[in-house]
Structure formats: C-alpha cells, structure tokens
C-alpha cells in the first residue's frame, strides 16, 4: 500500500512546506491588503507546523502565540484603521514587478544552489531513528538557557565547545528592555501630536 511506503515525516514536511510557500506567494501576488494579512497568517501558521515537525515544539507554540496571535492582530488592526476602499488594493506597477521578480528569482536561485551544495546539509542524520521524543522536549532547557544555564551543553566533553555556557542571559535582558522601550515608543508614536495649521495653508 502506498501508505506503508510513505515516509510520514516527508509527507508532512512537504505538506507544510507547500502551504508555507504557497501562502507566502499568495501574500506577494495579492493586492487586497486584508487578503494579504490572511494569507500571511496561514503561511506563518504552516511554518509553525514545520517547527513542530523539526522538533521545536516550544518555538512553534511561540510562533503561533506571538507571531500569529500578536503581530498579525496588530497588522489587521492597522488594516481596519485604514480600511478605506482606495487603500485596500494598491496595484504594483508592472515595471517594479519585472525588476523585483528578476532580482528575487536570481536570489532564490543562488540560495537554492547554496542550500543543496553543502554535503553535510544534504545528508540525512545518521542517528535519526535514535532520537527520542524527549530529546526534543526542551522547554525547561530553553527556560534555563534564557536564565543563563545551558543544561544541554553540560555533557559537552570538549571544553572549547562549552564556550557559550553563560547561556543567553544578557541577550535576554537586552531583548526584554528593548521590548519594553519599543512598546512605550510605539504607544507614544501612535498617539503623537499633530501640527494643524489654523490658517489652512500648507507650511
């Protein structure tokens, strides 16, 4: 039977990959800004599926929660604030299409060549079958990693490779502060004062 012959990892990978790329392209080729947002949700959601497939459960859930759940609500909010028919679809000039697709196509070609050129990336994991589910369940490790403890590297025999032992505490703190500042800044900007010329003329 065909089911028996199938590699389910591959099946799901291709399914999610097609969804991801397909909806990404739909974002590109759609002109209606709300449709674009909708396709973007689906594309990002499907890529969360890829994350799950690659064993990054936590990142996948994060992707759904923050990226899809948070970011895109903001985007859609923006869409609604500007939901005037004249902005809903703004056509791209065909000249731009030609240039962008040309450059983009060549970039894609280059990236693909690179991706499939490195032998190490192309060969399957020799101990793929041995990987236990537990090895990918790394929520606590991620948490510890942010707190500065890299438990996953404790068993690294090579002292040199244990270089990143301090984990990601500093970046984590920096990102936290960054996030705070950004949110305050964004809130401030969105409520900015606007100069209105009483005389009515443009200054």
């Amino acid at each position: 039977m065909i089911f028996a012959a199938m590699d389910w990892h591959a099946f799901f990978f291709w399914m999610f990959a097609l969804l991801t790329c397909g909806f990404a392209l739909a974002v590109l080729f759609s002109n209606n800004v709300v449709h674009m947002a909708f396709y973007l949700i689906l594309s990002l959601g499907a890529s969360a599926g890829l994350f799950f497939l690659a064993g990054a459960e936590f990142v996948g859930a994060m992707q759904l929660m923050i990226y899809v759940g948070g970011t895109l609500v903001l985007v859609i909010f923006g869409v609604m604030l500007t939901a005037q028919s004249r902005f809903v679809s703004m056509e791209t000039r065909s000249g731009e299409w030609v240039v962008a697709l040309g450059v983009g196509g060549s970039l894609l070609f280059m990236l693909m060549i690179t991706a499939f050129n490195v032998e190490d990336w192309r060969s399957p994991n020799p101990r793929q079958g041995e990987v236990t589910v537990a090895e990918t369940q790394v929520v606590s490790q991620i948490g510890l990693g942010f707190a500065g403890v890299r438990v996953d590297k404790l068993d690294q025999p090579d002292g040199q490779l244990r270089g990143g032992m301090s984990g990601y505490l500093l970046p984590f703190v920096i990102v936290s502060i960054h996030l705070l500042v950004v949110l305050i800044g964004a809130a401030y900007m969105a409520r900015t004062k606007r100069r209105k010329d009483v005389s009515g003329g443009r200054s």
């Binding site: 991801t20 590109l28 890829l50 970039l107 894609l108 990236l111 693909m112 690179t114 991706a115 990336w121």
Partner: peptide, 10 residues
C-alpha cells in the same frame, strides 16, 4: 533551507 529561501525571497 529551501523553504526558508522561498520565504525569504518572497
């Protein structure tokens, strides 16, 4: 990487 590349280029 291929999927990543497609998304990136898109």
């Amino acid at each position: 990487l291929l999927v990543g590349a497609v998304m990136f280029v898109t």
